Simulated assay, not measured.
Amino acid sequence: MLSADRAWTLEQNDRRLTLFAEPRPYEVGLHRHPAWKLVLADAEAVTTGGRAVSGPGLLVPPQLAHTCRTRTGYAALFLDPWLLAGPTEITPLPAPAVRRLRAALPDLDSAYVELVALTGAVPAGLDPRVAHVLRYGALAEEVGLSPVRLRTLVRESVGIPLVRLRRWARLRDAVGALSSVPPARAATDAGFADQPHLTRTARTLLGRTPASFRAAR
């Protein structure tokens, strides 16, 4: 279980899972991220079409615009879009599944195994060239592809434009650095033009500001 003093955590492993947790209820504005999001809390999410979904936990698919609020402290786990194959709508999770997943944290590998068992499917493996670019930020020429061919391969295999995936990776890097450096430094180190650029991106992809992450520490 996540202890109450872990008000802010962010960890990654070779499966590119990202986790953060807060001990308080929270609400985020309308946003759309290119990742799977698992919310482990008494939560409610509302899509842009006005459909509200609530439950002990929620699984939100990539690219779905939504707001989200929790009634308790929560853990949020983000997974790269190629790591799961599952529903295209927000799915409420039963309480036993939420308990198993929370018990598996903060061991992200164990949580991933539980989540795969819950959704029942894993996508086919990525083209090795695409996998290398997505994991290491390599350029097209480094994997023997033209930029156009690389963008096409990524969109065909992941379903999300490469530029959006790279922006998500920069945002994760910046948010991860907020625990140790000021927002302006986190922004430039992660490749954003400046701190306002980071703030706009965070609002778009996460529904909250970088300042809110620092306040949660």
Rank of each mutant, 00 (worst) to 15 (best):
P183C: 06
V181E: 09
G176I: 13
P196T: 01
G176W: 02
T188I: 06
S179M: 12
D189A: 05
D173I: 14
V175F: 05
V158Q: 11
R185N: 09
T188H: 00
Q195V: 14
V163E: 15
G159H: 10
R172S: 11
Q195P: 05
A174K: 06
A174I: 14
E156F: 12
V175I: 08
P183H: 05
V154Y: 10
G176Q: 08
S179I: 08
R185E: 12
V175D: 05
D194I: 03
R164Y: 09
D189G: 14
A186Q: 00
D189F: 11
A169R: 01
A169P: 00
L171W: 00
P161N: 13
R164W: 11
D173R: 15
R167G: 10
I160C: 13
L165Y: 00
G176A: 13
A187I: 01
V158N: 07
R164K: 14
V175R: 09
G176D: 06
V158T: 11
P183R: 02
L162A: 05
R167N: 12
A169T: 09
R166A: 03
D189M: 12
L165A: 07
V158L: 10
P182R: 03
L178G: 03
V163S: 15
A184I: 09
R185L: 13
L171A: 02
G159W: 14
G191P: 01
Q195R: 12
R167H: 13
T188W: 00
S157R: 10
D173V: 12
